[in-house]
Design a protein around this nucleic acid. Sequence first.
RNA 1: GCCCAUGUGGCGGAAUAGGUAGACGCACAGGACUUAAAAUCCUGCGGGCUUAAUCACCCAUGCCGGUUCAAGUCCGGCCGUGGGCACCA
Length: 802
Amino acid sequence: MNFNIIEKKWQKYWEDHETFKAQNGGEKPPYYVLVEFPYPSGAGLHVGHVRSYTAQDAIARMKRMQGYNVLFPMGWDAFGAPAEEYAIKNHIHPKEAVTKNISTFKKQMQTLGFSFDWSREFSTTDPEYYKWTQWQFLQFYKHGMAYKATIPVNWCPRCKSVLSNEDAAGGVCERCGIQVVQKEKSQWMLKMASYAEDLLEGLHDTNFAEKVKLGQINWIGKSKGVELDVDIVGGGKFSVFTTCIETIYGITFFVIAPDGKLIKELLPRVENKEEALQYIEETKKKSNMDRTELNKGKTGCLLKGIEAIHPITKKHVPVFLGDFVLGDYGTGAVMAVPSHDERDFEYAKEHHIEMIQVIDGKDTKDHAYEKQDYLGVGAKLINSQEFTGLTVEEAKEKITKKLVDMGIAREVNNYKMRDWIFSRQRFWGEPIPMIYCEKCGWVPMDEKDLPLLLPDVAEYEPTDDGESPLAKIKDWVNTTCPHCGGKARRETDTMPNWAGSSWYFLRFMDPHNQEEFASMDAMKYWGKVDWYNGGMEHTARHLLYARFWVQFLYNIGLVPHKEMIWTRVSHGMVLGSNNEKMSKSKGNVINPDDVVNEFSADILRVYEMFMGDYEQDAPWNTDSLKGCKRFIDKIIRLKEKVVEGSTYSHDLETIIHKTIKKVEQDTLNLGFNTAISSLMILANTYEEKETITKEDYHVLLTLLNPYAPHITEELNEQIGYSPICESSWPKYDEEKTIDQEITIGVQVNGKLRGEIVTSKDEEKDSILEKALNNEKVKQFLEGKEIVKTIVIPNRIVNIVIK
RNA sequence: GCCCAUGUGGCGGAAUAGGUAGACGCACAGGACUUAAAAUCCUGCGGGCUUAAUCACCCAUGCCGGUUCAAGUCCGGCCGUGGGCACCA
């Protein structure tokens, strides 16, 4: 049997018959299966792609047979630095590289038989697509959600570009892995931080996997606390944010961020201005990474002439600069309680500041007694005036109330998540459709002039001065102001590659719409994405950006739901056979094309589904792949046993109904490996028989079809059935999934001593009688007193003796 | 340090609500078929102890405890591995 020819044959059949084309509308209920569209790299499709695409393909194929109108689209996320770097290295235009890569990817996907609706294909780099990305940016701008700000940003010296906080997690460039540095630049920003609470709340309206939800919750990083005003001796005041207001009596100093706004205001009053300025300069030089890595001691600088007044005791306490306080979190200033915060403790030691323990229960000579240790254990306050003796929980509440009543504090929430830095100094991205006019300032382009096309140029290398390569293209940059008609310049930064992927799933619902990014009708028809599969690494980035983007569109009335993604799941990686991540340098890369050539697409698909728990990483194992070939060969051989018959063989009925149920449920619960295993069991059962009916064979082929679509269609055709892709999914009868005879274990004092055969739902008394009469069990009961018997029909018998 | 995940044979991994641990597959060993190989088929395959071989028994889901008639599964405490975050007040 030539797998190659068969696979081509059926791929052509599907194409000719437009089998997988989804219609917007109709009788059938809609079902949207989505898998992250890939970045079409030069390396081609990875076996890891095959794993998740096959999984979603199996769901899509099964759902179609179950009578759903399934949307299973595919496209290309093709903007971004890798394409640009590839292009620079090979001296071709990124557009050409992308076109070539897309065609390779598409061919590979088609070879594997994924049931994508190719009529909806697009790339984020298509002007007809990025026109709408730009249009949506203008909506952000027009609703006050996009602004330009000069801020210290993460700058990657190698990529020569600004990175978002999400892209620079851990202080290193996400792509090239080198340390990022801080640089002041004027950037477009999207006000994502203002959506922090909505993004948290919205998670309740999703069915994301728990770990995905947690990933987002952690990234958003909400803390509840109190913002407290602190007066300065001689007038003026500042605020601090704290989550531990119960320690207020332990304040012995305050620390403010050297990179924050506050110090700029206070500086004129600082007596040791020179020293302070020097410290600020030093801080600026350190990147975020250094600041955390140094971690050696707590550097800082006392601000002479600035003394704070303790809000309750009215004592005067010193104020310091310290780089462990971040300028862009909270208020950029903290109240320091060295007895109850390790950082404050270290700082106090370093700078010889007094400490006051205010929570009893642990010695604070060597270390602070921190909140994670004193909360929830009934710890009580000391040295805290009228609050002494209260538990920390009571004190938290009462102190807050007192301060709020005094009018010097507010309960607030703070979030780690910041606004989205939306500018990149790169060529290969969506141009930001903004124009700068000396007279009018930043002016948005007229919507009817979109798309703002990327110019065709010869030079797209990034520049050392931190400007986008677009800045060099004078006739593109120079334009007229849409407002006053005067001379103006275009924004030369481009969007991050997360922009295009933030709304592509909406476009798939209505991909050829010329008037809108997608019609409200189409989006209402399809509703939320039913299944969205993607990598865990996108949890804090793509998925968060996409949700933010959708929530914004919802708030301005352009999408029907605040959350457009219902279930989000993620797959484990396919590792090399040495259990390490596949990489060229390790020489453990498996190319799916080779596997298809040597085995077949179906075998590769079945293997990747069978290789292990879908959500866990799994190493590649060629031997195991051969086992899957044996399974497919067995399926083929079974055809020789087929005889006429339009019903299931009587003795196979139970196992067939059981298998239908199992495959159906497992396929929808990410249990792909156990679905395949139950099909193996069914095939093994068939093999033991002399003959099987056509119907027996047909049902096996149908159940296997979502996983191995080509060979099953071929065999099914050979026994004279019409194509599986046009048939319906078999139904199981719950009654028939249950064995009439069940063998159960008999335990004596919890240890298995024998087995008995019972009929389904047999009476307890009758089961017990059988158990007591079991020869082996009898031996253990001899001369003993039966204290208790437990009989669970269909499951177990346990006899307790003394 | 904090958060998450995870720990079951030689290996990948099974085990709805606690109910016969090791499904299914791989590898390995022995055998059949073959001139031979491949393919296929049959048998065995956690450890220990016994035995001529069986039968039987004992131990076993990272470690230590607990709850229960019964624990891979529930609870408490440790240890290991992988990942994420990390001076976030």
